[in-house]
Simulated scan of single mutants.
Amino acid sequence: MNRFGEEIKRLIFSFTKNWTVTEDLTQEVFVSVYLHLEGFREESQIKTWVYRIAINKSKDYLRSWAYRKMVITDSFTQEKDYLNEQPDILLVKNLENQQLFEQVMKLPLKYREVIILFYLKELSIEEVSEMLQLNTSTVKTRLKRGRDKLKNSFIVEGGNHDGIKA
């Protein structure tokens, strides 16, 4: 937990976009790691294995009834009050490139996850491929399409897209 805790928390937040759920899922991930540590076959790095568990827990949550119910409820009651947000969320929102972060978070999950793992987590295409259980060509395609979507969203909204490599 000391080694990967914050990274896993940020990764899960990139899926859920909800800090409370992120905290709960992070705990579930590390409980699962602890309970299944003896089953780790060392076919990959421990980091890859822990990330895979976190990604699976996040995807399971996004498929759950609790998430769909929350999305429906939030769409009716959502108000942005940045003054009451937790310091961790404020830190993320104060990143140098706030606009890029927001656009990445708007991407469909299949593009968002490869962009975050490749650029933010600085994993290789092979590592992303292993974590998401996808072919490397699929990862490359999703990276390209994700970058294209980001580039187009910046052009449409009149933003600067110089930092995005297409």
Rank of each mutant, 00 (worst) to 15 (best):
E6C: 05
R10H: 01
I12T: 02
F13R: 03
F15Y: 15
T20S: 13
E28V: 07
E28Q: 09
V29H: 00
H36P: 01
G39R: 02
R41S: 07
E43C: 05
V50F: 04
Y51C: 06
R52Q: 09
R52F: 05
Y67E: 02
Y67R: 03
V71Q: 08
I72E: 10
T73L: 05
T77N: 02
Q78V: 03
D81F: 05
Y82V: 09
L83A: 11
E85S: 11
P87I: 15
P87C: 14
L90K: 15
L91M: 12
L91N: 14
L95Y: 12
L100D: 06
F101E: 12
Q103A: 10
V104F: 04
M105R: 10
P108K: 11
P108F: 09
Y111W: 08
Y111C: 04
I115W: 05
L117C: 06
F118L: 07
Y119S: 06
L123C: 09
I125E: 04
E126I: 11
E126D: 12
E127Y: 08
S129V: 10
L132P: 12
T136S: 15
T136C: 12
K144N: 08
K144P: 04
R147Q: 10
K151Y: 15
N152R: 14
F154S: 07
F154H: 10
I155C: 04
E157G: 08
N160F: 12
I164R: 01
I164W: 02
